[in-house]
Structures are given as C-alpha cells and as structure tokens.
C-alpha cells in the first residue's frame, strides 16, 4: 500500500457563519487519497459530506468560510492560492467535481457540443477541431456516441446526462474527481450502469475518486476505503473489507447505520434504526457527538471528545469504546 498520495487533507474546517451563530459543518477532518484509489465519504444528510466536497474545491457556499486546515494536492498546499489561481490552475485541472443533480448542471438552451466546447476552451486553448476530437474521445470513454453532441439536454435521459457530466469532468484529466451522489437521482438499473462506468474509468485512466453518498450499499460497490462522517466529523475510516467484511465496522454509528441499511437477499423481520435525530450543529453535544444516540455510550463519552485512533492497520475509529477494547 505504498502508493503516492494524490490528495491529503489536514485538519480542514469549514464553518457557516449564520445570523443564529456558527455552524461547524466540517469540523477538523483529515484524510488522504492515494493514486488510483476510490475513497468513499458516507453519512446522513447534513453530516457535512457535500460541504467537504465543495471545500476541497475551495468553493464553500455562502455564508460558509474555510477557517483552517491544509489541502495538499501532490504535496502542494492549495490553501494559500487566490481565487484566480484556483480557477486557472486547480479547479478542473487538478480537482473536478460531478454534481448531485447532473440534470441541472447542463444549460437547457445550449447543445451538448456547445457546453462541452465552452468548458474545454475555457481551460485549454485549442482549435474547434481539436476540441471536437477531444470531446469524441471522452464521450467514447463514458460510452456515448458522438451524435449526442448535436442534441439538447432535454433530449437525453438522466443516465446519459450523468455520463455527459462525467465526460466533462474528465476533460483535463484531473488528479482527483469528486463524485457527489452521482447515482442518487437515477433508477437502479442506470445506477448500476454508472457505477460500472466509474469502475471502468478508474481502471483505464488510473483516476482517483472521492465518492460521496448517503447510501452504504452503493459505497460497498465502489470504494476501496470508506470514511464515515457524523455531525461534521469523520468517525471511522477503514478499507472496504474492514467496514463491510465479516467482522464489521468498529464505530457504533457505522454499525447501526449498516444495520439500518436494508439488504435485498436477507429476510430480516426487523430493521435496526438509530433513535433520535442528528444533532443541531449550532450546538453540537459535548464530548462524542454521537453519544446521545449511542447505545453503548459511557460517562467518558459525554465529556471528552474522542479522536481518530488506529485500531488495526489502516483502520481508524473515533470512539472511546474501540480504544478501550484494544
């Protein structure tokens, strides 16, 4: 596992400064992404996974601000870069993003060709002919024929539109591609097709992905390593085998979440659920943020905040119990 690190995030903090107070949407998270690897970011809505994605592009949506931390791409910190430099040399060149509502990322009044052309020429000076060649090449990668270039977005199905946005993210061959719920709005069959496509691309182009989703089942199919987020923090990081394997995850939250995920081929009478709701990030609970909903919380969990600890090689968990059992 001694591959080079493409992306390293250290102590990233992104806060929303609202009129009611500071919402710590992403609170001191660190992780790394190796070349050719897919890292899954998984968690419930409002846990900060999408916010993390946008923070990596240094595009926090207002009133959000990145308050601290480092983002290293190939060892180079992009934090000090200005907005202009970000636009010129980082976004799309080094990190690209595939958004949740792929359908809404395409302008309805332009043909696919024109939209792709714009993205392409904005970042790389090239002639129309060259651009067209590039477009065809990448459309080929995502399994689309070139005649869709002349069409308008509304003439394409959801899956095709998602493929177009993936092709556009690939254009400049970025080091990291962030996929924010790329399959959520799609039907199961199409979902499976897109997942296959992403795996195929990863293999062929040696890409590194960050795959953001709320669905543990999808994550199991695509990600080499999984980072579980809860209330703005990473609570567990482990390999696919460690999280989904026989022995199961270490953190009670991950365990519970996995228990709540319905399994098609198992006939369970009762699904597990986690009582209560995710905390309000304006006033997060003291100590471990999961303790009010945790079935095995101890006195210590209420007072002291656990940090990510390596409980076995490459497997980290932020839980006092896990530390004790070690």
């Amino acid at each position: 596992m001694n591959m080079e690190k493409v992306l390293e995030v250290k102590n990233l903090k992104m806060y929303y400064f609202t009129s009611k107070g500071v919402v710590k949407a992403v609170d001191d998270i660190s992780f790394e992404l190796k070349k050719g690897e897919t890292l899954g970011l998984v968690g419930e809505s409002g846990c900060g996974k999408t916010t993390t994605g946008f923070s990596l592009l240094k595009m926090p949506s207002p009133p959000g601000k990145i308050v601290g931390g480092q983002i290293l791409i190939n060892g180079e910190d992009i934090m000090p870069l200005s907005e202009n430099e970000m636009r010129k040399s980082v976004r799309w060149q080094k990190i690209a993003m595939v958004f949740q509502g792929a359908m809404n990322c395409l302008t309805p009044v332009y043909t696919i060709e024109r939209q792709m052309m714009e993205t392409l020429q904005l970042h790389k000076p090239m002639s129309k002919e060259e651009a067209r060649e590039t477009m065809k090449k990448y459309l080929g990668y995502v399994g689309l024929s070139e005649d869709i270039l002349k069409r308008y977005p509304h003439e394409l199905s959801g899956g095709m539109k998602q493929r177009v946005t993936i092709a556009m993210a690939l254009f400049l061959e970025p080091e990291v591609i962030i996929c924010d719920e790329p399959t959520t709005a799609l039907d199961v069959v199409v979902q499976a097709q897109i997942i296959n496509l992403l795996k195929d691309l990863k293999e062929k182009l040696k890409l590194s992905f960050i795959f953001i989703t709320h669905d543990l089942a999808t994550e199991a199919e695509v990600s080499d390593r999984i980072a579980v987020m809860y209330a703005g923090k990473i609570v567990e990081v482990g390999t696919n085998q460690q999280i989904y394997g026989e022995q199961g995850p270490a953190h009670p939250y991950t365990q519970k979440l996995l228990g709540a995920t319905p399994k098609l081929h198992e006939n369970v009478k009762e699904l597990a659920f986690i009582p209560g709701t995710p905390p309000d990030l304006l006033e997060p609970p003291t100590g471990c943020r999961f303790h009010p909903r945790c079935p095995v919380a101890m006195e210590k969990c209420k007072k002291e905040e656990p940090i990510l600890n390596e409980i076995e090689p490459n497997h980290f968990a932020a839980c006092w119990r896990c530390l004790n059992e070690q």
């Binding site: 499976a192 997942i195 543990l216 089942a217 994550e219 199991a220 695509v222 080499d224 696919n240 989904y244």
Partner: peptide
C-alpha cells in the same frame, strides 16, 4: 441484479 448490497469484496 442491479441492486447494491452492503457487502465487501465487490469493488
């Protein structure tokens, strides 16, 4: 066949 299952070893 298309449904994802939370099981390891399918990456």
């Amino acid at each position: 066949a298309a449904v994802c299952e939370p099981k390891s070893g399918k990456v």
